[in-house]
Amino acid sequence: MKNKVDLFDRRDCLRKILLGYKEPQSTTVLHERLCAELELENHIPKSTQRDLEALERIGDVRQVKLDSDLRANFWEWAGPGLDLTLLPTEAMTVSAIIDHAARFGLQAPPEMLGKLRKYVDGVMRKGPHRKLEWAKRITTGTRFTVLQPGRSNPDHVARIQDALRYNEPLKVTYLPRDAGGVECVYHLKPLALSYQDSNIYLSAYVLIEEWPEGCAPEPGAKRGKYSSNGPNTQCALMLHRVVAIGESGWEIPEPGNFDVNSPEAQKHLMTIHDNELVELHLRLGVNLHNRLSENPLTADQFMEQTSDGKWELRCTLLDTQGLRLFLLSNADEIEVIEPPVIRAHVREALRRAVSLYADD
C-alpha cells in the first residue's frame, strides 16, 4: 500500500473513475475506489472531497444532490471525456481519421468531437517551422461516389451506445422498409453498431414486436431488408428509420458468443450469397491487373500471365454483395471464369444494363 500519491495522479484517477459511471456517485464511493485503484492507505475522505471540488472548478465534474440522501455529496462527470497528449504527427493522423469517418457516414454529435477537433487543430498549428491551413493539406476520399449520410438522430445513437455498455434492453419505435409507412415497436437487445455505406446500422435481437391492429406481416411472409425478421430473431436496423427509443420492461437475453464480424451477423448487414468460401477465377484487363498488383483483392490472391499475354487471377473469398458490386463496377476490365453462379450473375446484370440502352 502507498502512503502518498501526487494530487495530479489522484485527480486523473477520479476523472477515469467517474467516466465509468452512468449515475452520480457519492464522495464515499469515489474515495473507496480511489484508494483501491491507487493502493492508498491513510488517505482521508476530506482530501478526496477537495480533489473533487478542484475538478468541479475547472468544469470536469459536477456536484449534485439526490433526494434519496440529502446529506451526502454526489458527483457526476461533466467534462469532455478526453485526456490526450498528442505529437503533431499523431494529431495529423487523428485529423485524417475524423475526416474519413465523417465522409463515410460516421456523423458523431458536434459536441462529442468538437473539443477533440479543436485540440487536434491546435496541436497542428503549433508547428515551429510552417503555419499552414491544415484543412488544405490533409484529406481522405475514394474514387467512388459517396452517398449523403442517412439522417440518424445523434440522441438515438448515444442511447444505443449506453444500452450496449450497460447491457440494457430497449423499446424501439421503427419505420420498417416496405411496410407502407406503418410504424412498429420492437422490444430488443442491442448487439452492435455498424457504420457502413453512409449509414449506421444496429444489430439486435428482437424478442417482441408490437404492430398496429391488422398490420402485422403474415407468418412466414418475406420481410423488408433492414427490418425485424420476426420475434425471437436477430436482425439489422437502419438508425435513420428509428422514430423513438425508450426503456423496455422485458428481460431480453443476448445470443451467446455474439460477434458482429461473424457470417451469421454479417448476413443481416449485407447480402451473403453463400456461407462457404468460393474459388474466384478472373481474367483481367491491363488497368485492373495493374491496380490489383498494388492493392490485392485478398491476401491469398495469385496472378499469372497466360500464353496469350493475358492475366488471370485466382483467390478465395465469400460470395457477397460487395464482391458482385466490385465485379460489375469493373465489368469492362474483368471476365469471370469461375464460379459459374457468379459468372451467370454478371452476365445477366450486363444484359439488363445493355437493354436499357438498346434504342441508342
Rank of each mutant, 00 (worst) to 15 (best):
K4A: 14
R10H: 12
R10N: 11
R10K: 13
P24R: 04
Q25F: 00
S26A: 02
S26R: 02
L30F: 03
C35E: 05
E37Y: 02
N42I: 00
H43S: 12
H43R: 00
Q49C: 08
E56K: 14
I58P: 00
D60W: 06
L70P: 07
A72E: 07
W75Y: 07
L87N: 10
I97G: 02
H100M: 12
A101H: 11
G105D: 12
G114I: 09
K115C: 06
R117L: 09
V120M: 01
R125W: 00
K126Q: 15
G127Y: 01
P128Y: 04
W134G: 03
I138F: 06
T140C: 15
G141S: 12
T142Q: 09
T142P: 03
P149C: 09
G150D: 07
D155H: 11
D162G: 00
A163R: 01
P176I: 11
G180T: 09
E183Y: 09
Y186H: 13
L188H: 02
Q196C: 10
N199E: 15
L202F: 04
E209I: 10
A216T: 06
P219Q: 07
G220I: 10
R223K: 14
Y226G: 00
T233Y: 02
Q234F: 01
C235K: 02
H240N: 12
R241F: 01
A244L: 04
E247C: 06
E251T: 15
I252E: 07
P253F: 05
V260H: 04
E264G: 08
A265M: 11
K267E: 14
L269G: 03
I272C: 08
I272M: 15
H273L: 07
E276R: 15
L277H: 13
L282D: 01
V286C: 00
S293R: 11
E294H: 13
T298G: 04
D300W: 08
Q305C: 12
W311L: 06
W311D: 11
E312R: 07
R314A: 11
T316E: 14
L318V: 04
T320F: 04
Q321G: 12
R324D: 01
F326V: 02
S329H: 12
A331T: 05
E335M: 04
V336A: 03
I337W: 01
P340T: 11
P340I: 10
R347L: 10
L350F: 03
R352H: 05
